Amino acid sequence: MKTRIDKKPTITARRFTRKRWTPIGRRSDADRAVIEAVGLIAKQRGVSRAQVALAWVLQKQGISAPIIGASKPGHLNDALAALSIRLTADEIAALEQPYIPHPVVGF
């Protein structure tokens, strides 16, 4: 025996206010200044932001093998391209000047 339902379900559009966690989603105003500095240098050099960021890490003493977390071929391409980028002292200063250390959280 079939049962017929005469009422059509109503669908209500709903906006979710909870954002999915992303590193960019957690940035502060201080972080924006660093992101803008990375973007400016990347634009001037004609490379990606990831390449500039990785080049900076590679030029820091004590870092011999940064963990790149490549999950897509483009990530690996950026990492390999960063090996050939040598940032100038002025570029490094421009990247480090706006940085404000964050407290360690979660331990």
Rank of each mutant, 00 (worst) to 15 (best):
R49W: 01
P101R: 00
K72G: 02
T88R: 07
F16M: 09
V57K: 12
A42R: 05
Q97L: 02
W56E: 09
I63G: 06
E91F: 08
K60R: 15
N77G: 01
Q61L: 04
I67S: 08
E96V: 01
D6S: 11
W21H: 10
S48T: 14
A33C: 01
K19A: 14
M1H: 04
I68W: 13
K8S: 15
V104L: 09
G25R: 10
D6I: 12
I5K: 03
V34M: 09
T10C: 02
P23A: 13
E91T: 07
A50T: 07
D6P: 08
A65N: 08
A50G: 11
G74L: 01
K8W: 11
A37F: 11
K7R: 15
S84I: 09
A50D: 03
A42Y: 02
I63W: 12
T88E: 04
L76H: 12
L54A: 09
T88H: 03
R26E: 15
H102E: 07
V104N: 13
F16Y: 08
I35E: 09
I63V: 15
L80G: 08
V47Q: 00
I100Y: 01
K43F: 00
K19R: 14
A55Q: 05
I11D: 07
P9I: 12
W21I: 02
R86Y: 05
G69D: 13
H75I: 05
A89R: 02
A37Y: 08
S64G: 08
R14I: 13
R26P: 06
Q51E: 00
A79P: 00
W56G: 06
W56P: 11
G69H: 03
R15W: 04
S28Q: 03
P73W: 05
H102A: 15
E91Q: 10
I35D: 10
P101V: 03
A30L: 01
R15E: 09
R14K: 06
L87P: 10
T12S: 02
Y99Q: 07
K60H: 15
P73F: 11
R4F: 14
D90G: 10
K8Y: 12
G25Y: 07
M1G: 00
K19E: 14
T88A: 01
S28K: 02
I24V: 12
L76R: 11
I41V: 12
R86C: 10
I68F: 10
T10Q: 00
I92H: 01
P73Y: 05
R49L: 05
W56Q: 12
E96W: 05
K2N: 13
A89P: 04
I41D: 03
D6A: 13
R32P: 02
K2G: 05
K2H: 08
R20Q: 13
T22C: 06
V104T: 09
I63Q: 12
I63T: 15
I11E: 12
D6C: 11
V57W: 06
M1L: 02
G106H: 04
E36F: 04
A70L: 14
S84F: 01
R86K: 14
K7P: 01
T88Q: 04
T3M: 06
R20I: 12
R18E: 14
R14M: 13
Q59T: 02
G25H: 06
A55E: 08
A81C: 02
V57L: 15
R20S: 13
F16W: 07
P9Q: 01
V38P: 04
G25E: 09
L58V: 06
V52F: 09
K8A: 06
S84G: 01
I100Q: 13
R32T: 14
D31I: 01
P98Q: 07
A82G: 06
I67A: 08
